[in-house]
Amino acid sequence: MEKDRVVESYAWVYGWKVKDGKCAPPAKNHPLPEFAQKRIDWVSDAIQNRMLTFRGAFKMLLEIDDEKELKKEWDFGASSDYMPVSDEYRNWLNDPILGDIRSVALMIAVIYG
């Protein structure tokens, strides 16, 4: 079971493929968990609507320890509702062994969609 979690997490970063002669990013080949994808979609929409920079998006995805401060910053400049960090997302991202590689997977998913 532990090996499967490790293999899956690394596939989210290194699972690039070529499909129909085009580069396909890992999230297209190895989908992230639904709760993570929902948060990615939330920040991606904000980026597309020019409410959030990449740095701001990464903060909303990765720097989740002080949620009160995150919500305050979101409410200051956004025109949509803040998305609270779910316990499932928090536990997944804060995994002591796989948290760092999962952080990279989130960044890759935002950049390459």
Score class of each variant (00 low, 15 high):
residue 1 M to W: 09
residue 2 E to S: 08
residue 3 K to T: 11
residue 4 D to S: 14
residue 5 R to L: 13
residue 6 V to I: 15
residue 6 V to Q: 09
residue 7 V to R: 15
residue 8 E to Y: 00
residue 9 S to M: 02
residue 9 S to C: 13
residue 10 Y to L: 14
residue 12 W to D: 08
residue 13 V to Y: 08
residue 13 V to M: 06
residue 14 Y to Q: 13
residue 15 G to P: 05
residue 17 K to P: 00
residue 17 K to H: 12
residue 17 K to F: 01
residue 18 V to N: 13
residue 18 V to P: 00
residue 19 K to I: 10
residue 19 K to G: 01
residue 19 K to H: 10
residue 20 D to P: 02
residue 20 D to Y: 11
residue 21 G to M: 09
residue 21 G to K: 10
residue 22 K to T: 08
residue 22 K to A: 10
residue 22 K to V: 09
residue 23 C to Y: 06
residue 24 A to P: 00
residue 25 P to S: 14
residue 25 P to G: 04
residue 26 P to N: 10
residue 27 A to C: 13
residue 29 N to G: 03
residue 31 P to E: 09
residue 32 L to W: 05
residue 33 P to N: 09
residue 33 P to K: 10
residue 34 E to F: 05
residue 36 A to Y: 01
residue 36 A to K: 10
residue 38 K to W: 00
residue 38 K to I: 03
residue 39 R to W: 06
residue 39 R to D: 05
residue 40 I to G: 10
residue 40 I to D: 06
residue 41 D to F: 06
residue 42 W to H: 15
residue 42 W to D: 09
residue 43 V to L: 07
residue 45 D to E: 12
residue 45 D to N: 14
residue 46 A to L: 11
residue 46 A to E: 07
residue 47 I to V: 13
residue 47 I to D: 02
residue 48 Q to S: 14
residue 48 Q to T: 08
residue 50 R to C: 03
residue 51 M to C: 02
residue 51 M to A: 03
residue 51 M to Q: 15
residue 51 M to V: 00
residue 51 M to Y: 07
residue 52 L to K: 11
residue 52 L to M: 15
residue 52 L to Y: 06
residue 52 L to H: 03
residue 54 F to P: 00
residue 54 F to T: 01
residue 55 R to N: 13
residue 56 G to L: 11
residue 56 G to Y: 11
residue 59 K to Y: 05
residue 63 E to D: 15
residue 65 D to N: 13
residue 65 D to L: 06
residue 66 D to N: 15
residue 66 D to R: 12
residue 67 E to M: 10
residue 69 E to V: 04
residue 70 L to Q: 14
residue 70 L to W: 02
residue 70 L to G: 03
residue 71 K to P: 00
residue 71 K to L: 02
residue 71 K to I: 00
residue 71 K to G: 01
residue 72 K to F: 07
residue 73 E to I: 06
residue 73 E to Q: 15
residue 73 E to L: 14
residue 74 W to D: 03
residue 74 W to Q: 09
residue 74 W to V: 03
residue 75 D to R: 08
residue 75 D to E: 15
residue 76 F to Q: 15
residue 76 F to A: 15
residue 77 G to S: 11
residue 78 A to L: 03
residue 78 A to W: 01
residue 78 A to F: 01
residue 79 S to A: 11
residue 80 S to D: 11
residue 80 S to C: 13
residue 80 S to W: 01
residue 80 S to T: 14
residue 81 D to S: 13
residue 81 D to L: 06
residue 82 Y to T: 02
residue 82 Y to I: 04
residue 83 M to T: 03
residue 83 M to I: 03
residue 85 V to A: 01
residue 85 V to L: 06
residue 86 S to Y: 04
residue 88 E to C: 03
residue 90 R to H: 12
residue 91 N to E: 13
residue 92 W to C: 04
residue 92 W to G: 06
residue 93 L to W: 08
residue 93 L to R: 15
residue 94 N to H: 14
residue 94 N to I: 00
residue 95 D to Y: 07
residue 95 D to P: 00
residue 96 P to Q: 09
residue 96 P to A: 08
residue 97 I to W: 04
residue 97 I to R: 12
residue 98 L to R: 10
residue 98 L to N: 12
residue 98 L to P: 01
residue 99 G to A: 07
residue 99 G to L: 08
residue 100 D to P: 00
residue 100 D to K: 14
residue 101 I to Q: 09
residue 101 I to Y: 11
residue 102 R to F: 01
residue 103 S to R: 15
residue 107 M to W: 01
residue 108 I to K: 09
residue 108 I to D: 12
residue 108 I to G: 07
residue 110 V to W: 04
residue 112 Y to G: 00
residue 112 Y to W: 12
residue 112 Y to N: 13
residue 112 Y to L: 07
residue 113 G to M: 09
residue 113 G to P: 00
